[in-house]
Design a protein around this nucleic acid. Sequence first.
DNA 1: CAGATATGTGAGGGTAGCCTCACATTGGAG
DNA 2: CTCCAATGTGAGGCTACCCTCACATATCTG
Lengths: 206, 206
Amino acid sequence: MASRISSQGGRPPQRRRGHERVAALLAAASDCFVERGYDATTMTEVAARAGASIGSLYQFFPTKEALAEALMADHAEALYARMERLVEQAPGWDTQELATRLIRTFADYRRQHPSFTTLVEAGGSLPPMLGRTIRQRMRDYLCRILAIHAPGLAAGELRPAAMVVQQLMKAAVALQNEQPAALRQSAQTQLRRTLELYLKDLAQTG
Amino acid sequence: MASRISSQGGRPPQRRRGHERVAALLAAASDCFVERGYDATTMTEVAARAGASIGSLYQFFPTKEALAEALMADHAEALYARMERLVEQAPGWDTQELATRLIRTFADYRRQHPSFTTLVEAGGSLPPMLGRTIRQRMRDYLCRILAIHAPGLAAGELRPAAMVVQQLMKAAVALQNEQPAALRQSAQTQLRRTLELYLKDLAQTG
DNA sequence: CAGATATGTGAGGGTAGCCTCACATTGGAG
DNA sequence: CTCCAATGTGAGGCTACCCTCACATATCTG
């Protein structure tokens, strides 16, 4: 799980020890976020857990937010890789089959990486920009995959695909948080169909 | 929605104006928690939103935690009332029918009261004791109802009912957060069945 | 009205936590 | 080996926020 560090500030590691430190720091951050949540974890604790000092932590991550974003970037990359691998393996599927597999991949990854779930669901408590970044990135990934491999939906226009993806997001990420009353009726119907798909798959998987 | 204020400290209101203030403060807290999450909302903001000063807020709620707990107490009371009303209306149901209705009631309440969901799901970021209190109370409520109205499960022994209730909790409260790998196999099977029930109902409701 | 109690106010104490800085140490290139 | 950039360190600045306190005002009882 090589990490690319946040784009803003924070010099990337260059020597071997630097890379090791970054990996340890990200692992520590992951554990802390899962156990205590984003707000409650302190930078001091992350550093201590990684066997480093605060200064060392700030050497690579200029901000607590940047730390979370780097962790999220790693997750996003890994998840995206899984999805692309999945799509490459069997290009002949129709939209529904593809959606089912993608959702299962997504759900599996969530189960295997609790910190990913923690960050995605932290929602309101995260710094606004970070929250938006995370959701945007997830949406982009799913949208790109669906747009490429579901030509029936993305033929020329982007709106429908984006809508479906948004509903996939809602189903897979924030199932219980969403408020159906706030959704338009047509979208709601489509969401229900997506939900059924997701739930059926989830029930099979366990 | 008359509130009973936290048990620990914090004198309950006695005059008319006091009751109005408490209601306004709880409403403000509810909004803030939903928008920003528990950690990110400040007591100053809650007070300002309710048109009061900080001193006024601390007149009734001795602690930020007490404020959240009072809000949660209101929710718990309202939800419990709904559940009891439901059970009284049709005492002839079998276990499955009852469970389905209870879960729907639970899901409906969650949709109608976002701050309830916010507090229940805040999980790791809440002060440990508050989090435990919240989960314990929800478990007690569901357990009591199931124990009373599903004699087949609660005949003498409490263990099976408690287990089912725990799984109901997992299904209804933290569907995606749980890690099936950490569960025992038998429990997992039962959980799956409960999940299917929950999901089926959710799909129907929208 | 008068006394008593409840309620209202906001400046400030205390603290926790993010982040900086000045300097020590390590490791690799020439 | 020598030198320089990378990495390591932790005390402390600074800010934000929870909560207290001394006092003002409002509301109720007699």
